[in-house]
Write a protein that binds this DNA or RNA. Structure first.
Lengths: 128, 128
DNA sequence: CCGTATCCTAAAGGATACTG
DNA sequence: CAGTATCCTTTAGGATACGG
Protein backbone atom coordinates (compact mmCIF):
# COMPACT_ATOMS: atom_id res chain seq x y z
CA UNK A 1 0.00 0.00 0.00
CA UNK A 2 0.95 3.53 -0.54
CA UNK A 3 1.81 6.13 1.93
CA UNK A 4 -1.20 8.35 2.40
CA UNK A 5 0.72 11.60 2.44
CA UNK A 6 -0.66 12.47 -0.94
CA UNK A 7 -4.32 11.89 -0.27
CA UNK A 8 -6.26 14.56 -2.14
CA UNK A 9 -8.94 15.20 0.51
CA UNK A 10 -6.33 17.47 2.00
CA UNK A 11 -7.20 19.96 -0.68
CA UNK A 12 -5.85 23.38 -0.88
CA UNK A 13 -8.24 25.12 1.44
CA UNK A 14 -7.41 28.36 -0.31
CA UNK A 15 -9.90 27.27 -2.92
CA UNK A 16 -12.56 27.12 -0.23
CA UNK A 17 -11.56 30.50 1.07
CA UNK A 18 -11.69 32.02 -2.38
CA UNK A 19 -15.11 30.58 -3.02
CA UNK A 20 -16.38 32.53 -0.04
CA UNK A 21 -14.21 35.60 -0.29
CA UNK A 22 -13.72 35.76 -4.01
CA UNK A 23 -15.38 38.35 -6.11
CA UNK A 24 -14.41 41.90 -6.39
CA UNK A 25 -16.15 43.32 -3.35
CA UNK A 26 -16.47 40.77 -0.59
CA UNK A 27 -13.27 41.54 1.22
CA UNK A 28 -13.60 45.24 0.63
CA UNK A 29 -17.00 45.15 2.31
CA UNK A 30 -15.67 43.10 5.19
CA UNK A 31 -12.87 45.55 5.65
CA UNK A 32 -15.33 48.40 6.02
CA UNK A 33 -17.29 46.48 8.60
CA UNK A 34 -14.18 45.85 10.61
CA UNK A 35 -14.51 49.43 11.76
CA UNK A 36 -17.91 48.67 13.20
CA UNK A 37 -21.54 48.32 12.32
CA UNK A 38 -22.59 50.16 9.19
CA UNK A 39 -25.84 50.73 7.45
CA UNK A 40 -26.46 50.19 3.79
CA UNK A 41 -26.00 53.78 2.75
CA UNK A 42 -22.78 54.08 4.71
CA UNK A 43 -21.36 51.10 2.95
CA UNK A 44 -22.45 52.49 -0.36
CA UNK A 45 -20.68 55.72 0.41
CA UNK A 46 -17.53 53.93 1.50
CA UNK A 47 -17.42 51.98 -1.76
CA UNK A 48 -18.46 54.51 -4.37
CA UNK A 49 -17.78 52.30 -7.33
CA UNK A 50 -20.05 49.48 -6.31
CA UNK A 51 -23.57 49.56 -7.66
CA UNK A 52 -26.54 49.28 -5.39
CA UNK A 53 -27.47 45.99 -6.90
CA UNK A 54 -24.03 44.50 -6.40
CA UNK A 55 -23.81 45.75 -2.84
CA UNK A 56 -27.13 44.14 -2.05
CA UNK A 57 -26.11 40.89 -3.63
CA UNK A 58 -22.73 40.64 -2.02
CA UNK A 59 -24.21 41.48 1.37
CA UNK A 60 -26.74 38.73 1.00
CA UNK A 61 -24.07 36.24 0.07
CA UNK A 62 -21.88 37.26 2.97
CA UNK A 63 -24.87 36.86 5.23
CA UNK A 64 -25.68 33.44 3.80
CA UNK A 65 -22.06 32.42 4.34
CA UNK A 66 -22.27 33.45 7.96
CA UNK A 67 -19.78 36.28 7.83
CA UNK A 68 -22.11 39.17 8.54
CA UNK A 69 -25.45 39.79 10.19
CA UNK A 70 -28.25 41.92 8.84
CA UNK A 71 -30.56 43.76 11.20
CA UNK A 72 -33.65 45.50 9.94
CA UNK A 73 -35.19 48.28 11.98
CA UNK A 74 -38.71 48.79 10.81
CA UNK A 75 -38.82 52.50 11.12
CA UNK A 76 -39.56 55.34 8.78
CA UNK A 77 -37.35 55.75 6.96
CA UNK A 78 -36.12 52.17 7.12
CA UNK A 79 -32.77 51.39 8.64
CA UNK A 80 -30.69 48.29 8.02
CA UNK A 81 -27.47 47.62 9.81
CA UNK A 82 -24.72 45.23 8.90
CA UNK A 83 -22.17 43.84 11.30
CA UNK A 84 -19.55 41.16 11.28
CA UNK A 85 -20.09 37.82 12.89
CA UNK A 86 -17.32 36.12 14.78
CA UNK A 87 -16.35 34.38 11.57
CA UNK A 88 -16.25 37.69 9.78
CA UNK A 89 -14.10 39.27 12.43
CA UNK A 90 -11.69 36.36 12.19
CA UNK A 91 -10.65 37.71 8.82
CA UNK A 92 -9.32 40.85 10.40
CA UNK A 93 -5.63 40.12 10.02
CA UNK A 94 -6.00 38.72 6.53
CA UNK A 95 -7.97 41.68 5.27
CA UNK A 96 -5.43 44.00 6.76
CA UNK A 97 -2.52 42.24 5.16
CA UNK A 98 -4.23 42.05 1.81
CA UNK A 99 -4.85 45.76 2.00
CA UNK A 100 -1.23 46.42 2.82
CA UNK A 101 -0.05 44.13 0.08
CA UNK A 102 -2.41 45.70 -2.44
CA UNK A 103 -1.13 49.13 -1.63
CA UNK A 104 2.46 47.99 -1.90
CA UNK A 105 1.76 46.21 -5.16
CA UNK A 106 0.03 49.21 -6.63
CA UNK A 107 2.91 51.46 -5.72
CA UNK A 108 5.50 49.07 -7.05
CA UNK A 109 3.87 47.93 -10.25
CA UNK A 110 2.13 51.18 -10.83
CA UNK A 111 0.97 50.03 -14.24
CA UNK A 112 -1.47 47.48 -12.94
CA UNK A 113 -2.17 47.03 -16.59
CA UNK A 114 -1.45 43.79 -18.32
CA UNK A 115 0.81 45.34 -20.92
CA UNK A 116 3.25 47.67 -19.33
CA UNK A 117 5.72 45.34 -17.75
CA UNK A 118 9.06 45.12 -19.43
CA UNK A 119 11.34 45.49 -16.49
CA UNK A 120 10.73 45.51 -12.81
CA UNK A 121 12.97 48.57 -12.98
CA UNK A 122 13.57 48.25 -9.31
CA UNK A 123 12.43 45.73 -6.83
CA UNK A 124 14.27 47.93 -4.44
CA UNK A 125 11.15 49.01 -2.72
CA UNK A 126 11.36 46.12 -0.36
CA UNK A 127 8.67 43.61 0.13
CA UNK A 128 6.25 43.80 3.01
CA UNK B 1 -11.91 42.79 -13.34
CA UNK B 2 -8.66 44.47 -13.87
CA UNK B 3 -9.79 47.99 -14.46
CA UNK B 4 -7.45 50.45 -12.82
CA UNK B 5 -8.89 53.25 -14.87
CA UNK B 6 -10.33 55.24 -12.03
CA UNK B 7 -7.56 55.48 -9.50
CA UNK B 8 -9.41 56.95 -6.58
CA UNK B 9 -6.67 57.89 -4.16
CA UNK B 10 -7.21 56.40 -0.76
CA UNK B 11 -9.00 53.40 -2.09
CA UNK B 12 -9.40 50.12 -0.46
CA UNK B 13 -6.30 48.47 -1.79
CA UNK B 14 -7.95 45.14 -1.24
CA UNK B 15 -9.69 45.74 -4.51
CA UNK B 16 -6.32 45.99 -6.20
CA UNK B 17 -5.15 42.85 -4.49
CA UNK B 18 -8.25 40.97 -5.55
CA UNK B 19 -7.84 42.09 -9.13
CA UNK B 20 -4.48 40.38 -9.16
CA UNK B 21 -5.19 37.45 -6.89
CA UNK B 22 -8.84 36.89 -7.64
CA UNK B 23 -10.04 33.97 -9.60
CA UNK B 24 -10.34 30.47 -8.43
CA UNK B 25 -6.80 29.28 -8.94
CA UNK B 26 -4.33 32.11 -8.60
CA UNK B 27 -3.62 31.76 -4.92
CA UNK B 28 -3.73 28.01 -5.06
CA UNK B 29 -1.04 28.07 -7.72
CA UNK B 30 1.05 30.52 -5.75
CA UNK B 31 0.75 28.32 -2.72
CA UNK B 32 2.17 25.39 -4.64
CA UNK B 33 5.07 27.46 -5.85
CA UNK B 34 5.88 28.52 -2.33
CA UNK B 35 7.39 25.09 -1.91
CA UNK B 36 9.80 25.75 -4.72
CA UNK B 37 10.16 25.79 -8.47
CA UNK B 38 7.73 23.53 -10.28
CA UNK B 39 7.23 22.56 -13.85
CA UNK B 40 3.95 22.62 -15.67
CA UNK B 41 3.14 18.98 -15.26
CA UNK B 42 3.93 19.09 -11.56
CA UNK B 43 1.54 21.96 -11.05
CA UNK B 44 -1.08 20.12 -13.03
CA UNK B 45 -0.67 17.12 -10.80
CA UNK B 46 -0.83 19.23 -7.66
CA UNK B 47 -4.10 20.79 -8.78
CA UNK B 48 -5.98 17.91 -10.34
CA UNK B 49 -9.19 19.82 -10.85
CA UNK B 50 -7.74 22.57 -12.95
CA UNK B 51 -7.84 22.13 -16.70
CA UNK B 52 -4.75 22.48 -18.81
CA UNK B 53 -6.15 25.52 -20.48
CA UNK B 54 -6.95 27.28 -17.22
CA UNK B 55 -3.57 26.44 -15.76
CA UNK B 56 -1.86 27.92 -18.77
CA UNK B 57 -3.96 31.04 -18.65
CA UNK B 58 -3.59 31.68 -14.97
CA UNK B 59 0.13 31.13 -15.17
CA UNK B 60 0.39 33.66 -17.96
CA UNK B 61 -1.56 36.20 -15.99
CA UNK B 62 0.52 35.66 -12.90
CA UNK B 63 3.59 36.10 -15.04
CA UNK B 64 2.23 39.29 -16.59
CA UNK B 65 1.45 40.58 -13.12
CA UNK B 66 5.01 39.97 -12.06
CA UNK B 67 4.31 37.33 -9.47
CA UNK B 68 6.00 34.39 -11.14
CA UNK B 69 8.70 33.73 -13.69
CA UNK B 70 8.54 31.29 -16.54
CA UNK B 71 11.66 29.60 -17.79
CA UNK B 72 11.64 27.54 -20.93
CA UNK B 73 14.32 24.91 -21.47
CA UNK B 74 14.43 24.11 -25.10
CA UNK B 75 15.07 20.44 -24.79
CA UNK B 76 13.36 17.34 -25.98
CA UNK B 77 10.94 16.85 -24.47
CA UNK B 78 10.36 20.47 -23.55
CA UNK B 79 10.64 21.59 -19.98
CA UNK B 80 9.10 24.73 -18.50
CA UNK B 81 9.67 25.80 -14.96
CA UNK B 82 7.72 28.24 -12.88
CA UNK B 83 9.01 30.07 -9.85
CA UNK B 84 7.89 32.89 -7.65
CA UNK B 85 9.31 36.35 -7.97
CA UNK B 86 10.03 38.46 -4.94
CA UNK B 87 6.52 39.87 -5.23
CA UNK B 88 5.10 36.39 -5.39
CA UNK B 89 7.03 35.27 -2.34
CA UNK B 90 5.78 38.28 -0.46
CA UNK B 91 2.37 36.63 -0.41
CA UNK B 92 3.68 33.79 1.68
CA UNK B 93 2.05 34.73 4.95
CA UNK B 94 -1.22 35.73 3.36
CA UNK B 95 -1.55 32.51 1.39
CA UNK B 96 -0.79 30.57 4.50
CA UNK B 97 -3.40 32.35 6.58
CA UNK B 98 -6.01 32.05 3.88
CA UNK B 99 -5.34 28.36 3.74
CA UNK B 100 -5.69 28.07 7.48
CA UNK B 101 -8.84 30.14 7.48
CA UNK B 102 -10.31 28.15 4.62
CA UNK B 103 -9.74 24.92 6.47
CA UNK B 104 -11.25 26.32 9.64
CA UNK B 105 -14.23 27.68 7.75
CA UNK B 106 -14.82 24.41 5.98
CA UNK B 107 -14.75 22.51 9.24
CA UNK B 108 -17.03 24.95 10.99
CA UNK B 109 -19.59 25.62 8.31
CA UNK B 110 -19.33 22.23 6.79
CA UNK B 111 -22.22 22.99 4.51
CA UNK B 112 -20.28 25.28 2.27
CA UNK B 113 -23.57 25.40 0.48
CA UNK B 114 -25.38 28.66 0.13
CA UNK B 115 -28.60 27.37 1.60
CA UNK B 116 -28.09 25.53 4.81
CA UNK B 117 -27.57 28.31 7.29
CA UNK B 118 -30.40 29.33 9.52
CA UNK B 119 -28.64 29.74 12.78
CA UNK B 120 -25.02 29.81 13.74
CA UNK B 121 -26.06 27.17 16.28
CA UNK B 122 -22.81 27.67 18.06
CA UNK B 123 -19.92 29.94 17.39
CA UNK B 124 -18.24 28.08 20.14
CA UNK B 125 -15.61 26.55 17.94
CA UNK B 126 -13.27 29.39 18.48
CA UNK B 127 -11.84 31.53 15.74
CA UNK B 128 -8.30 31.23 14.44
C1' DC C 1 5.71 17.79 -22.48
C1' DC C 2 3.62 21.87 -22.86
C1' DG C 3 1.04 24.00 -24.70
C1' DT C 4 -2.96 26.53 -28.77
C1' DA C 5 -7.31 26.75 -31.04
C1' DT C 6 -12.27 26.44 -30.96
C1' DC C 7 -16.39 26.54 -29.13
C1' DC C 8 -19.37 26.77 -25.39
C1' DT C 9 -21.95 27.66 -20.70
C1' DA C 10 -22.45 29.92 -16.52
C1' DA C 11 -21.49 33.37 -13.52
C1' DA C 12 -20.00 37.96 -12.41
C1' DG C 13 -20.90 42.38 -12.90
C1' DG C 14 -23.42 46.57 -14.40
C1' DA C 15 -27.08 50.51 -16.07
C1' DT C 16 -31.26 52.00 -15.34
C1' DA C 17 -35.81 52.34 -13.68
C1' DC C 18 -39.10 51.54 -10.19
C1' DT C 19 -41.01 50.65 -5.01
C1' DG C 20 -42.52 49.75 0.21
C1' DC D 1 -33.58 54.50 2.88
C1' DA D 2 -32.90 50.33 1.20
C1' DG D 3 -33.84 47.87 -1.65
C1' DT D 4 -36.23 44.88 -6.50
C1' DA D 5 -36.85 44.16 -11.31
C1' DT D 6 -35.15 44.01 -16.00
C1' DC D 7 -32.09 43.68 -19.33
C1' DC D 8 -27.56 43.54 -20.95
C1' DT D 9 -22.24 42.94 -21.49
C1' DT D 10 -18.13 40.94 -20.02
C1' DT D 11 -15.34 37.37 -17.77
C1' DA D 12 -14.40 33.12 -15.80
C1' DG D 13 -14.14 28.75 -16.60
C1' DG D 14 -14.39 24.38 -19.12
C1' DA D 15 -14.47 20.19 -22.89
C1' DT D 16 -12.24 18.71 -26.49
C1' DA D 17 -9.14 18.43 -30.29
C1' DC D 18 -4.89 19.38 -32.40
C1' DG D 19 0.31 20.96 -32.75
C1' DG D 20 5.63 21.82 -32.14
Amino acid sequence: MRDSSQETPEYCAIETAMEVLGGRWKLAILKQLLTGTLRFSELKRALPRITQRMLTRQLRELEADGLITRTVYREVPPRVEYALTEAGRSLDAIADQLDTWGRWYRDTYRAADRSAQEQPTATAVGTP
